[in-house]
Design a protein around this nucleic acid. Structure first.
Lengths: 213, 213
DNA sequence: ATCAGTATCACACAATTGTGTGATGTCTCC
DNA sequence: GGAGACATCACACAATTGTGTGATACTGAT
């Protein structure tokens, strides 16, 4: 059977060596190269075919996120597993959006790491259970917003915000709510003060942040 | 030991009866009421103390999401478990933001359901593993956006979007990027067309949606 | 009964945004 | 070495947004 061609990228030489040593012992894996930043990864991919790419999240020059986006664009067949020491839930959510297939903590056991590479090669998703939990927590106990800081927004005001968010003009909002444009303008004015924003863009962003719409 | 006071809300009478029958059999649970929509739930809570609320996601008049928000605001101590038949990943993410403590599929086994109620009562998070997977999938294979539909946005344009999102005026953006206001206006014009939006509000929202900023 | 909060409207004016059209220099890629 | 994408700028004008100030009316709570 064809060996799985693996490329490892990490800015710490020691970790790079360690990973290589571990993975080389498995007879179904073939570590065909290493890189210490995203640019090197892209260079490598131009000349060699890679099945699975192990990518450190924190790297200088081009980090894991950015690298993933570039690799996915030019070499969509490469399966990318993100390695991270990060246990903050907040970042994890965004990790899921860039197109990698797996996310493992660096302290994952050898066995699980190797199995993860094989799974990823077959198109299976690979996620450290610890990371999954963290991610859920970051969603559940949304730390993005401190409750006390949210001012009271009335129903009517929320209606206005929602319509603004849908790209309605003041005139259109007035028509939709059967009030005058002056009234809508007043609502907006009040909202700007309450929400401490300068314009509709800021207002809509905060409203989304606060889960108002 | 005090029994756990449970309120069940679902618009299907049959499911309501079924759940009640199942839960009543457990001697540590006490089903003190049922409701068929969110308004009834709120009414009930005004007169009775409830420990755990089982809430159907799909209900007429006031659905699970909305109900949860209201309940959490007025009765923050009530532990809410959302029941759902929904297996679309997309909705699940938003479920995590409204403050419920658990999310279970309706076809969960009796045993797991009862255990879930007990766990929720103790403040533990309760999530069907199936739902967890779906949620991750919805993040990984983000269906919110069809890849092909995202137009090419240049670096410079993204810089402009970011500043707009931070409530910069055109003049301020021009100063920040050392270009004329005309240039900024042109970038915006081009972006509006590319992104198919009518104004900055829509643009920033889409940019956030697409993970550009 | 009074007060705070909400919702409504008016008028006027300044500031900003958005549109239409056209132009120039610099890239890269084939 | 031309085509196309990108970034830059100008000028003019329409449309919309944002601000300042003041007013009326309804409601619910003290």
């Amino acid at each position: 059977m064809e060996k799985i061609k693996v490329l490892i990228a990490d800015d710490h030489q020691i970790l790079l060596d360690g990973l290589k040593a571990i993975l080389t012992k498995d007879r179904s894996l073939n570590v065909i190269g290493t890189a210490c930043n995203g640019l090197e990864v892209l260079e490598f991919l131009k000349t060699e075919t890679v099945d699975v790419l192990l990518l450190d999240l924190q790297m200088p020059i081009m980090d894991g996120l950015e690298t993933t986006m570039h690799v996915k664009k030019s070499f969509p067949n490469v399966k990318i597993i993100m390695l991270t020491t990060n246990d903050e839930g907040s970042i994890i959510t965004s990790l899921f959006k860039v197109g990698a297939i797996g996310y493992l903590l660096k302290n994952t056991s050898k066995k699980y790491l190797i199995q993860g590479i094989k799974d990823a090669h077959e198109g299976k998703k690979v996620i450290s259970s610890h990371l999954t939990e963290k991610m859920i927590e970051s969603l559940v106990e949304n730390p993005k917003v401190k409750e006390g800081t949210i001012p009271k927004i009335t129903k009517r005001e929320i209606e206005v915000i929602k319509l603004i968010a849908q790209e309605y003009t003041t005139q259109e909002i007035a028509d939709a709510l059967f009030v005058s444009t002056n009234t809508v303008a007043t609502h907006k004015r009040n909202l700007f003060v309450k929400m401490e924003v300068k314009n509709s863009v800021g207002m809509v962003r905060k409203a989304v942040d606060w889960g108002l719409i």
